[in-house]
């Protein structure tokens, strides 16, 4: 599979997931939380993927679960890219003391293991999808500052920024009109990879019992199936679908990310040395 078609495949799958998230209430007649059938029924015409130990429709839960996962992944990634782009740009643009303080703080913060910290903070603030995305955004954003900063640094030294300064453009204008558009491709790649990571983490938190109790999410579904008999009894339609769902979405985002990365990074392209 070529990079290009991988990229399109990724985009297509992501689009399909977003569509499902938007239309889940139209596609399935059941509420994901209502007790609509006998517990632990196998797949049938009325319940495509059977029911869980409470008698909830697994197919509906699977569709509705798309929402929580996408929100955590995309919102978390958006926040983290915002944080790293904002701080990274300011740090590189102004340089001097501001830059020094920011770079040193990032050096220190990068040493902290972010996942255990995320767990501690999630427990502390009580889990909800917005708390989780917010924490991921801030913790993950710190990790990306360095990359954006070095990119902006090379731009600040570029001629067109000098030119803009020479004709008296303001700092804010230079940053938004001249620097930001050049950082955007890199930020987009970071966004896609961050979305993949946070989405997996979000489902993982659900599995560990740190999911938002007010929403349906795949992690909680996997955990419930694993610990309440789905695994021991070999009820594959309970355990496997949410796992496949998260894996496929993750693969799609990975394809998207690597496709984009190759597009913007000429170093990874085959070049000819003369």
């Amino acid at each position: 599979m070529s990079r290009k078609s991988a990229f399109s495949a990724g985009l297509f799958i992501l689009g399909a997931y977003i569509l499902v998230a938007l239309l889940s209430s139209v596609i399935t007649p059941y509420s994901p939380t209502a007790l609509v059938g006998r517990p632990l029924d196998g797949p049938s015409d009325t319940h495509l993927l059977g029911t869980n130990d409470l008698g909830q429709d697994i197919f509906s839960r699977l569709l509705y679960g798309t929402r929580a996962t996408l929100i955590i992944g995309l919102l978390g990634a958006l926040l983290s890219v915002l944080v790293s782009t904002l701080v990274g740009t300011v740090s590189a643009y102004y340089g001097g003391g501001v830059d020094e303080v920011i770079t040193r703080s990032v050096d220190v913060l990068m040493t902290l293991p972010s996942f255990p910290l995320l767990l501690v903070l999630t427990i502390f603030f009580a889990p909800s999808i917005f708390v989780i995305s917010g924490l991921m955004g801030v913790l993950g954003g710190t990790q990306g500052i360095r990359i954006i900063r070095s990119q902006v640094l090379s731009l600040v030294e570029a001629n067109f920024v000098y030119g803009a300064k020479a004709i008296g453009a303001g700092d804010l204008r230079i940053m938004t009109r001249h620097i930001l558009p050049n950082v955007l491709p890199l930020a987009t790649v970071k966004f896609v990879f961050a979305a993949q990571r946070y989405m997996l983490m979000g489902v993982g938190l659900g599995f560990l019992g740190l999911g938002d109790p007010s929403v349906v999410d795949w992690g909680q579904m996997i955990s419930r199936a694993y610990y309440n008999g789905g695994f021991a009894l070999g009820l594959w339609w309970w355990l496997i679908p949410p796992g496949i769902a998260v894996t496929l979405l993750s693969v799609a985002l990975a394809l998207l990310g690597y496709g984009l990365e190759e597009e913007i990074d000429p170093r990874l392209k085959r070049s000819v040395a003369i």
Partner: peptide
Amino acid sequence: AVPSYWWAM
């Protein structure tokens, strides 16, 4: 791209 928990399972 496959999460570690899914490999484990």
